[in-house]
């Protein structure tokens, strides 16, 4: 127990060190202008963070997702979550890998598809994925946060692999963790700004309305954190899908509340391009919709519970948790 705790802490601490040194506002702006963060990527690879959670790495899925949450906290502009999952699903390698959803003979919304050495296409409700080596970019696109989300051709003869555990849900879980991380930063930015900004002769943090807004956000952030952990704990159980559904649906709602409140607290300054806030709020907003939005996952969970039935509803909820 204490040993795994310390491995986890070690990963988080060195991740934090690298990200605070390299993942600054300038890097985020460049990434959003389409410049790949090569230097940061090399640091990730050199530290083995692209191998977390793979069987040979000696690290666990829990550690991998904790690292992904850390990436969300720093808005790391790289397809780390996707590379990690591909390394878990296929023979792990040292390249940059990405994942998208199969749609009309293409793989769409592929993070940094243009830089990927390999792209995996997942399908809704199927454990089988398509593997595309040397992927051909059909179109370069970006999401709301300016993160590359490219369209990749899906060749007819692309090999398939059964990854065992619903890959779409695993991707949703990466978004849960990324959002939980970004939410923490939204709260931190809000607290810092409220204590520094002075109006009417005192820091705005002294106004009750601002205190209550931050209390609301703190509650949502804490809920998101627990929901993300719940999804990860579900990996080992037959409850994986409903646990992921609950986490993605719940955290999406948290983002809606928190981003709105934190922008309000920042006033006009938070509406500028110059301020860092939007790197986190836009990402969190975008991640709500990637790999199933709140409504999608609420329905998945709701249909599951309808089948469980009213009289067994509580038994379902009251598991070890």
């Amino acid at each position: 127990m204490s040993e795994t705790q310390s491995t986890l802490q070690l990963i988080l601490d060195s991740g934090e060190k690298i990200f605070s040194d390299h993942c600054d506002k300038k890097l985020l702006d460049q990434a959003e202008a389409g410049v790949f963060a090569e230097n940061l990527w090399q640091q990730i690879v050199a530290n083995g963070f692209n191998q977390l959670g793979t069987s040979g790495s000696g690290t666990t899925a829990e550690e991998m997702y904790a690292f992904i949450m850390q990436c969300g906290r720093f808005a790391v502009p790289l397809p780390i979550a996707e590379t990690l999952l591909v390394n878990c699903w296929l023979e792990p390698g040292e390249g940059l890998y990405s994942v998208g959803v199969v749609n009309n003979g293409q793989i769409i919304d592929v993070p940094w598809g243009r830089k990927a050495d390999k792209v995996v296409g997942v399908q809704l409700d199927s454990d089988v994925v398509f593997v595309v080596e040397q992927p051909a970019v059909v179109e370069q696109r970006v999401n709301l946060a300016g993160e590359p989300r490219d369209t990749i051709a899906l060749p007819d003869d692309a090999p398939t692999v059964d990854v065992g555990l619903d890959p779409f849900a695993q991707l949703a879980l990466t978004r849960s963790n990324l959002m939980a991380g970004a939410l923490q930063t939204l709260l931190d930015l809000g607290i810092t700004f409220a204590m520094e900004r002075t109006q009417f002769g005192r820091p705005i943090s002294k106004f009750q309305a601002i205190q209550h807004a931050l209390a609301i956000v703190a509650s949502e952030v804490a809920a998101a954190r627990r929901a993300a952990d719940a999804g990860v704990d579900g990996l080992q159980s037959e409850r994986f899908i409903p646990e992921v559904a609950a986490s993605k649906a719940r955290i999406g709602e948290a983002v809606t509340v928190a981003a709105e409140q934190i922008h309000q607290i920042h006033g006009a300054m938070g509406f500028t391009h110059e301020h860092r806030l939007h790197h986190f709020s836009r990402r969190a907003w975008a991640w709500r919709d990637e790999f199933g939005n709140e409504f999608h996952w609420q329905q998945v969970l709701g249909n599951h519970l309808a089948a469980v039935g009213a009289d067994n509803l509580w038994s379902f909820i009251a598991t070890r948790g």
Binding site: A249, R250, Q298
Partner: peptide
């Protein structure tokens, strides 16, 4: 359930499951 009914059930459950964890 209809889609909106399923979503309402799922939404409530997602909140309760999370609060129970907390």
């Amino acid at each position: 359930p209809a889609p909106h009914e399923a979503a309402a059930i799922g939404r409530i459950a997602a909140h309760i499951m999370t609060m129970r964890r907390m």
